[in-house]
């Protein structure tokens, strides 16, 4: 298990280094002259241009620029923003990340809990009406994007019934209940597709396990149903966990769309602004941070998988 953990950790770190390096050079390749880009339509003189260039460190060779950036990155320093007042990017992220992450995490929690409950119920009673409902609706729920669900929910629960705010984000430290109310709609609509997906996967895994040889043998030993159910759950869990890991990435993407629909100041609008203004350090910071979250979640889920399933440790 220790060897497995170390191996996973090494590959996660390697992926982060690769992504960071790749994004840095790709961003600089895409914006060959960041200084001119920053001035945009504003006219500027050659002195202003050179001064700006020196100020941003763009007069140095690209490899030096990379090393400076990377060195700071390792200490958690994303540099300062190029647009507006030169504030540390980390400050901006500290405001924006909680917005996106609270939607994602609440969505993930709703998805995992609801999906697990429905999946177990359907899997233990295959053929029941609940099971058939889940299977039938799964086709459409897989495909229809969260924001369409969100539009429908918004229409009914926010516009017509007024139970939830139509838009805006409330900080939890200011009003905990208000915060929860503000993120509920986007989180729930984000989660719904995943709920069905997890439920169906879990259900199928339970049904497969239930008809497997070893479960029959456990029953033949006289093991009581509750003890057999534990075996079923443990064998079905990896399928559900794998889906959760895959869903995290798409939840992050979905959250970016939803926070924009609900007018929330998350990383989505920051990404859009940064890429339109050519704010390279901001672009890099946003990419690195969001990939970091995905990598961390995948790493943790891998560990859980390895812990549950002894065979997974070998690969």
């Amino acid at each position: 298990m220790l060897k497995f953990t170390v191996k996973r950790l090494v590959s996660a770190v390697a992926l982060m280094v690769f992504v960071a390096t790749g994004t840095f050079f790709m961003a600089h390749k895409a914006i060959p002259d960041p200084v001119a880009n920053l001035f945009g339509k504003v006219s500027f003189t050659a002195e202003q241009y050179e001064a700006k260039k020196a100020q941003l460190g763009l007069d140095q060779p690209i490899l030096t620029q990379f090393w400076n950036w990377f060195r700071h990155l390792l200490t958690g320093d994303f540099g300062t923003t190029w647009v507006g007042a030169p504030t540390p990017i980390i400050k901006d992220l500290a405001v924006r990340l909680p917005v996106t992450l609270s939607i994602v995490i609440l969505g993930l929690a709703v998805m995992a809990v609801l999906g697990a409950i429905l999946g177990v119920l359907a899997g233990i009673r295959p053929g029941s009406w609940g099971d058939r409902m889940i299977s039938a609706s799964s086709v459409v729920f897989f495909a229809v994007p969260g924001f369409l669900v969100s539009i429908a929910l918004l229409w009914v629960l926010a516009v017509k019934l007024g139970w939830f705010p139509v838009s805006g984000y409330i900080k939890p430290e200011r009003d905990l209940l208000g915060w929860l109310r503000s993120i509920t709609l986007p989180a729930v609509s984000l989660a719904l597709g995943g709920v069905v997906m997890i439920a169906v996967q879990l259900r199928n895994a339970i049904v497969t396990a239930n008809s497997s040889d070893y479960v029959r043998t456990l029953r033949a030993r006289g093991l009581p149903p509750r003890a057999v159910a534990l075996h079923l759950l443990r064998s079905a869990a990896p399928a559900a966990i794998t889906i959760i890991a895959l869903m995290f990435v798409s939840l992050l993407s979905g959250a970016v769309i939803l926070e924009s629909m609900f007018n929330m100041p998350g990383i989505g609008s920051a990404t859009k602004d940064a890429s339109q203004t050519g704010n390279i350090p901001m672009i890099l910071a946003l990419t690195v941070v969001s990939v970091l979250f995905v990598v961390i979640v995948n790493f943790l889920l891998d560990l859980v998988l390895g812990w549950i399933n002894p065979k997974a440790r070998i690969k």
Binding site: V256, A274, G278
Partner: peptide
Amino acid sequence: SDVLMSLPSIIILLIVAGLT
């Protein structure tokens, strides 16, 4: 393929849209 799947695509696409 694993790297691509672990990238939050919408962030990258927003960046691509802005840069192009």
